[in-house]
Amino acid sequence: MPNAEFPHKWGMVIDLDKCTGCQACVVACQAENNIPINTKDYFLQRRAYEWIRIERYWEGEYPNIKARFMPVLCQHCENAPCEPVCPVFATYHNEEGLNVQVYNRCVGTRYCINNCPYQVRMFNYWHPNWPARLENQLNPDVTVRTRGITEKCTFCVQRLRRGEIEVEARGGQRLNDERIAGGNYDPACVQACPTNALMFGDLEEPDTAIKPYFDDVNAHPGHGEHDRETRGYRLLEEMNTRPSVIYLKKIDQYPLKGGH
């Protein structure tokens, strides 16, 4: 920890009403985190991978049809099913509420992939490579993962660490919403989202923008869902994984005819 004075618990809110499915977050994530390029081969082998993916669901029958989009990334569960099954502690929970993956420890049993209800853990089947010039754009702050290990979204921990060093350790100030946005310390997907559908913040910070959504969802868990005041919910709440990511429901302005 750069500065133990400022404890953090990172969280994210995803507003599905604002999401247009443009995939800017996906591209930003690929660029930031040195994720290999998903070539045609990777798709044909069904091994294309993204740390954040836009799930697209069709609702209704043509012509009475709608597309729904949902960005899904590692939920950084407080009660993560992937953590107890790793034999070598390659994945564990750190002090900032992040579910971290230690690439050096991973032996590639892939049990964590099977135990993740959100399917956000990716396995490197091949050694990653980039076309000649593109190697020059690799992010020096992020490890290039070798083949045979599992990887996943980190909430761009390299940016958070830089923020903690620059703002907290050197500046002596708390890394709050304003300073995260001002210093470009928020995750690449959040920064890239053109509609601000993704919001990132620190739940240890009392006046962060995402706090009310978490308070509301935490106050009415699972069975008390209908009492919630915001549109917030968690993915697969019945699994009791307690994700650090909250989704806000889409407001259906024009429901499908005879819709459900």
Binding site: R46, R47, Y49, F123, Y125
Partner: peptide, 11 residues
Amino acid sequence: RGLGITGLNYK
């Protein structure tokens, strides 16, 4: 060469 030569995939 890695597990790429098997049929295992993303899921």
